[in-house]
Amino acid sequence: MFAVDLRHYLILSAILFVLGIIGILSRKNSVGILMGIELVMNSAGINFVAFSKYVASDLSGQIFALFIFLIAASEVVVALAIILRIYQNKTTVNIEDIKDLKC
C-alpha cells in the first residue's frame, strides 16, 4: 500500500483538483476564485508529469506541463486585468455586486 506508484499521484492531484473546485464555488472575492483556478491548473500539471513518468516514458507529459504554465500565466494576466478594471469602475471585487449584465 505504501509503495508510491501512479495511483498515489492521481489521488493527490484529484484532491487538489476538488479543493480548487471548492475554492472557486465558495469564494465571493473574484481574486479568491482565481486562486482556486490556479489550484486546478496545478493538479492538471501533476497528472501530466505523473503519466509522463509512469505510463509513457517519453517526455511528452512534461511538454504539456510546460504549456500548462504558459496558459496559466496568460490566463492570470488577463483575468486580473479584467478584475482590476471592474474594481476601478465599481470599487468592488465581490462577484455578487457585478451583475450589470443581468436583466
Partner: peptide, 12 residues
C-alpha cells in the same frame, strides 16, 4: 503569478 495575485489583492 503569486506576485501578480498579491498586487491585485492589495490594489483591490
Amino acid at each position: 503569478i503569486l506576485v501578480l495575485i498579491l498586487f491585485a489583492v492589495m490594489l483591490s
